[in-house]
Deep mutational scan, measured.
Amino acid sequence: MASQGTKRSYEQMETDGERQNATEIRASVGKMIDGIGRFYIQMCTELKLSDYEGRLIQNSLTIERMVLSAFDERRNKYLEEHPSAGKDPKKTGGPIYKRVDRKWMRELVLYDKEEIRRIWRQANNGDDATAGLTHMMIWHSNLNDTTYQRTRALVRTGMDPRMCSLMQGSTLPRRSGAAGAAVKGVGTMVMELIRMIKRGINDRNFWRGENGRKTRSAYERMCNILKGKFQTAAQRAMMDQVRESRNPGNAEIEDLIFLARSALILRGSVAHKSCLPACVYGPAVASGYDFEKEGYSLVGIDPFKLLQNSQVYSLIRPNENPAHKSQLVWMACNSAAFEDLRVLSFIRGTKVSPRGKLSTRGVQIASNENMDAMESSTLELRSRYWAIRTRSGGNTNQQRASAGQISVQPAFSVQRNLPFDKPTIMAAFTGNTEGRTSDMRAEIIRMMEGAKPEEMSFQGRGVFELSDERAANPIVPSFDMSNEGSYFFGDNAEEYDN
């Protein structure tokens, strides 16, 4: 993207840094990872977990959730003011799984939030270390993106479920800051804005008074975040219109849905970061690795190297396929839920299948599930090659597409044709070009129609051997075009429920 120079890199967003050079960025990201790792080690000690239990991804998720809940100030305040039966607002906890007599047992633990905050700050040299908290939120978000298709949420806001490739980060909490905003897809931002506008339509006082002023500035800020994701002048001009509207209503909703559809071809720039579970960072720190000293990046080879040398386990339900569970977590670790499966298959070195073909449910185990038949197995999170994460949407291309997802959002900077089903997408653009945004709409449609099938995206960008740390010898991959490109292809993934 041309304006790259004016933006802070995501590592800076990730670490609240002012302008830093590459070495400083690597050190501050490393410091953040160190903090998460030290916190995780301490929690495993508190909970008396064995090494194996500490490497269980379900335990990692519970521990991450506990610290996120302990620092969720708004919710904590709300819980104190609106006490609900049987919930102690000062405590947080969740299921911890232990191996007892050759069987997995679930144990519900409860801790004072104050105590968890103390352990977290102690692991982070006394700081609140917001960057580390956001990092864990993005890992949870990436896992949700890989596990669930947001059909219901899309339909509720009037969008087409086939636009799911635009929904990265749709389950990120509001408090995820600049680093969170960077990884949100165009569809996620559109959905947040539509929800806001709908509230304004239904509630006369939404934009009024002292609160209304705050609401208005939040609305304009979200519009600017979305505008910054678009790469064409016409899309940005249309966002200006939406932002400046005196009284946002149905016309703005129409414009936003139009823009979301246009992003299936004229893709937005959305950041991709490899955020790993805390149970990967903990053992690495415990083994003596100093992330701050060595430096770390979320968008280069580092996460690949770390996963190459990590042992992570997962509980497996009786009829689940461990290899499929591994694929789910591998995609989440690489922030690749909406990437082209052919690119992923090449990088991973084994075939990556669409969601609907995987015999696996989510990673988390519900409290009512029976533990008797639970097994555990090693997650295979290694890769054959590594590639640089991208934040450009890439230019655009036609490809055989599917009944489910009709476009992709690249996660890796790797040369390819970008699949999208042009006739299906263009069919949504018939007729409606009147109104105050008509010239911009016409211009956007013209650009979409001009998108050429034979153009290559990320020209000359390749993948790298894991021994090639400096990215000196790019390998331009070859793809098996007979395979499906979309992950949520004609899909039956479970729906995400809060």
Rank of each mutant, 00 (worst) to 15 (best):
Q409W: 12
R317S: 07
G185S: 09
G126T: 13
N250Y: 07
F412N: 07
K229R: 04
R389G: 02
T130N: 10
N492Y: 04
S376T: 08
Q149A: 03
Q311E: 01
F429L: 10
D112G: 10
C164N: 14
S467Q: 09
N432T: 14
S3G: 03
H135Q: 12
T430D: 00
V285H: 14
E320L: 05
L172F: 10
G187S: 09
D127G: 11
S269H: 10
Q58N: 14
S310T: 14
E73N: 06
T146Y: 07
A427E: 00
R162H: 05
N247C: 15
Q399G: 10
G288N: 08
A2E: 07
S367H: 15
Q399I: 02
F458R: 00
E375W: 09
Q122M: 09
L68M: 11
R461P: 05
R216V: 06
D72Q: 04
S438E: 00
A2Q: 00
A442K: 09
M43H: 11
Y52V: 09
A442S: 15
L61W: 09
R55I: 07
L154H: 05
N124C: 12
K214F: 06
D128L: 14
I33P: 02
S9I: 12
V155F: 09
D203N: 10
Q168R: 07
S3V: 02
Y313H: 13
M481N: 03
I301Q: 11
L276S: 12
M43D: 03
N368D: 05
L328F: 04
T188P: 07
A442I: 15
A442P: 00
F489C: 06
S310W: 01
N211T: 13
V242D: 09
E107G: 04
S413T: 11
I253C: 05
T378I: 10
C279E: 08
L256G: 09
Y289M: 12
A123R: 10
I225H: 10
L306M: 13
S28M: 03
K357G: 05
Q241C: 03
M191W: 06
L154A: 00
E443M: 08
P453Q: 13
R65I: 03
G54P: 08
I63A: 14
R261Y: 07
E18L: 13
E443Y: 02
E294L: 09
A373E: 01
N319E: 02
R361Q: 08
T92Y: 02
T146N: 13
S217P: 00
F489G: 00
Q415S: 15
S170Q: 09
P474A: 15
V414A: 12
S274P: 06
A260W: 06
E115G: 13
K87G: 02
G460R: 15
Y10F: 13
R26N: 00
T396Q: 12
R74V: 09
D421A: 15
M43W: 02
G177I: 04
L307H: 07
P277V: 10
G54S: 14
G35V: 06
N247S: 15
A182C: 04
G394N: 07
S345H: 11
R65M: 09
F464P: 15
R221N: 11
E192Q: 08
E254D: 12
P161L: 04
L259H: 05
S287G: 10
M196N: 06
E380W: 13
R175M: 12
E254Y: 10
K198S: 13
N368C: 10
P83W: 02
G349Q: 10
P423F: 01
A442C: 10
S413C: 08
V186G: 00
I25P: 12
R75G: 07
R361S: 03
D491T: 03
D290A: 07
E484K: 14
A234V: 09
L154T: 01
S297I: 04
L49P: 10
M163L: 12
M189I: 13
N76D: 09
S376A: 14
N144K: 05
Y219I: 01
C223P: 08
A493I: 04
P410G: 04
G158A: 13
L256P: 06
N144E: 04
P322Y: 04
T147V: 12
S217T: 15
S383V: 14
G450E: 00
R441W: 09
T147K: 09
L298M: 12
C223I: 09
M66A: 11
S402A: 12
R236M: 08
H324V: 03
K452W: 00
T350D: 12
Q405P: 04
Q4G: 00
E81R: 05
I253R: 02
T360D: 02
F206A: 09
E107V: 09
G37K: 10
Q405C: 13
L259F: 02
G295R: 10
G393E: 09
K198Y: 11
N432C: 15
M238K: 02
N368S: 12
Q311G: 03
T6G: 00
M371S: 08
S407C: 15
T430F: 00
T23A: 13
D203S: 05
E14I: 03
I194N: 01
C44L: 13
A251R: 08
Y219N: 10
P161R: 09
R342Y: 01
T188D: 06
A234G: 08
L358M: 11
D255I: 08
A271G: 15
E11S: 12
S176Q: 05
M426G: 00
A234S: 14
L259S: 10
E46S: 04
D468P: 08
G249L: 10
P423V: 13
I119F: 08
T157R: 01
S335R: 03
A387L: 00
R117K: 09
N397M: 06
N247D: 06
A411G: 01
W139H: 12
L166E: 14
G187N: 01
G5L: 01
R204A: 04
G86S: 11
A451T: 01
G282S: 12
E80S: 14
Y148M: 09
S84M: 15
T134P: 03
Q42Y: 08
S482C: 06
A336P: 00
L418T: 07
V109I: 12
A22P: 08
P410Y: 00
S84G: 14
A182G: 11
R470T: 01
E107K: 07
G209P: 03
C44W: 14
E369M: 09
R361H: 03
D127M: 06
E114C: 09
R213W: 05
M191S: 06
P95K: 07
M238C: 08
A123H: 04
I257Q: 04
G5W: 12
H324Y: 10
K31P: 08
F230G: 02
E14Y: 01
E252T: 00
L259Y: 03
F304L: 13
A153E: 07
I41C: 12
W120H: 09
K305Q: 14
Q42I: 10
G228A: 13
P248H: 08
Q311T: 15
Q327H: 09
R246G: 10
V476Q: 07
M43A: 10
F488V: 02
P354A: 14
A27C: 01
N211K: 02
V343N: 14
E53C: 08
N492I: 04
R102L: 14
G404Y: 03
L110P: 11
I316C: 15
R213Y: 09
S353F: 12
I63W: 04
A237R: 06
R236K: 15
L344W: 05
E320D: 11
K7A: 00
G86I: 00
G435M: 04
P89D: 02
A178Q: 12
E455C: 14
T130P: 12
T433A: 08
R118P: 06
R121V: 10
V463P: 00
S482E: 04
R382Q: 02
Q405Y: 03
K48Q: 14
K48N: 12
L143M: 12
I197V: 15
P474F: 01
Q122A: 04
R106H: 10
C279L: 13
I194R: 07
G228Q: 04
P410W: 00
S478C: 07
I406E: 04
N124I: 10
F39S: 07
R361T: 08
R213V: 06
M456C: 12
F458P: 00
V414L: 15
P318S: 14
L49C: 08
R26G: 09
R436C: 01
N368T: 15
D112S: 09
I33S: 04
M43V: 13
K293C: 03
I388Y: 08
R342V: 06
T147I: 13
I444L: 13
S9P: 00
M189N: 02
